[in-house]
Amino acid sequence: MGRTSTEIALHIDFNSHYYRNIVRGVARYAAVSGWKFYTHRGIPEITKADLMQWQGAGVIGRITPELEKNLRQRGIPSVNVKADYVDFPVASVLMDNELIGREAARYLIEKGLRRFATTAWSIQGASGQLKVEGFIKALQQYGYDATILATQKEIQQAGKVLQVEKSEPVGFFAAEDFLGRMVMDACEDAGLRIPEDIAVIGVDNSPFICEMLSPTMSSIELGAERVGYQAASLLNRLMQGCAVPDEPIMIAPERIVGRHSTDILEIQDELVARALRFIRDHAAEPITVAEVVDALFCSRRVLEKRFRKEVGRTLHEEIRRSRIERACELLRDSDMLIEVLAEACGYSRRERFNAAFLQETGKTPSAYRKEYRFGKS
């Protein structure tokens, strides 16, 4: 293979939901860079064997220490996007796997759960272990621990392993979505209910695994497009002769997508739980505190007092939080104009929407959308 000075190679598994999202981020950057890509039968993917002899401008992908050395000796810069090794190349853009685990722990604790379990079985490389470590460290800060299912046999027997003290539900963190589905299937086979007995959250938010099966599964949306965009930006700087950064670039997970597998009643006060449901169901409407009170046929003073005690926020604050949460989803998933989006979230004026969004997130709506799509620069 002769050297093609503007050709970029992607050393990835294009069948992976995670890597396809990374490719989207690379493509977004490449749209203004003029790059050309190595392809095989139309797929932007190169094998390790071909890469060891390929002569091009730069590489993004799953870079092993051996491969990084080979490319460096041939003067080809590379950027790694997967934490397969503890000592991964410094020129890396990686998901913050420990933070993923910590976010899962926080989410399950906020659901009112007090028993926990986790698994990263079968995941090659350090990423799964880092997620589990982050999960356990976060639990320990709150005085909790977790049962670890370390083998396929333990996962297949998850229902039996976790059936002890069945009256107390278990919050389960799976380091990949497919592991979460395996755990859910095993628990249902053992007669446990999802989510009443086992509340499960996975990682990567794969549509088929999470949404096209019943019950649907909660998952952590990584926002891997930002990994691809930042990796392409870093590779461009390396190709221009810039120095390798002192530390890998770490990307925080985007958000938690809650579905049926964690939809447990974490609020003990039934009146407060009904208020939360009403607010959640009407987040797209310009509802008021008075309308919540009227819908529940109760005293405003009683509801306000019990709501603040149970949730830690006022009814007004919860309405605003629910509206802004919906706004964040629309900013991420649509190209809706801000003015139209504000109205869809119950705000008649953009100024009021901007002020509420800034107060809740610390960012303007435009900055939030830009950061989600392009990552922090």
Rank of each mutant, 00 (worst) to 15 (best):
E68Y: 14
V292M: 01
R277N: 12
N15C: 06
E188N: 01
R308M: 02
P245E: 03
G56N: 06
L10S: 11
Y368P: 01
I109Y: 05
T119Y: 03
R320F: 00
S206A: 14
I256D: 04
G362A: 02
F357M: 04
R277E: 13
S167F: 00
F357D: 01
I194R: 08
V203K: 02
V90D: 04
D84I: 00
M212H: 15
S322N: 12
E329D: 15
V26M: 03
D197E: 07
V289L: 07
G125M: 02
R3T: 13
K363N: 08
P89H: 11
A49S: 14
P253I: 07
T262R: 00
T119M: 01
L265D: 15
G2Q: 12
V302P: 00
A186P: 10
P77T: 10
E154R: 04
V289R: 09
A91I: 09
D294E: 15
R115L: 05
D177I: 03
E310I: 00
K82H: 13
D96F: 12
R350M: 12
I123N: 02
E360H: 07
I279E: 09
A224K: 02
E168N: 13
L113A: 10
L149G: 05
A150L: 04
H282P: 07
G134H: 06
F353C: 03
M184H: 05
I287Y: 03
Y38H: 15
V164K: 13
V132A: 11
F307S: 02
L271H: 05
V59K: 01
V32T: 15
V302L: 07
A174F: 09
R255I: 11
P207E: 11
E317K: 01
S5M: 14
I123L: 13
F178V: 14
Y107D: 08
A117N: 10
T64R: 00
L51S: 09
G362F: 08
A186Q: 04
S334D: 13
T151H: 01
E110W: 06
P215H: 09
V203Y: 09
V227P: 00
R226E: 10
F116R: 07
H316V: 05
L331I: 04
S206Q: 15
N205G: 03
V81L: 01
Q129I: 12
A367H: 02
R62H: 09
I249K: 02
E66R: 04
D50Y: 06
R62Q: 13
P195S: 04
L238S: 10
G112W: 06
L130D: 14
F297G: 02
V340Q: 14
K363L: 14
V90M: 05
D197G: 01
R226S: 08
G34V: 09
R237F: 03
A31M: 08
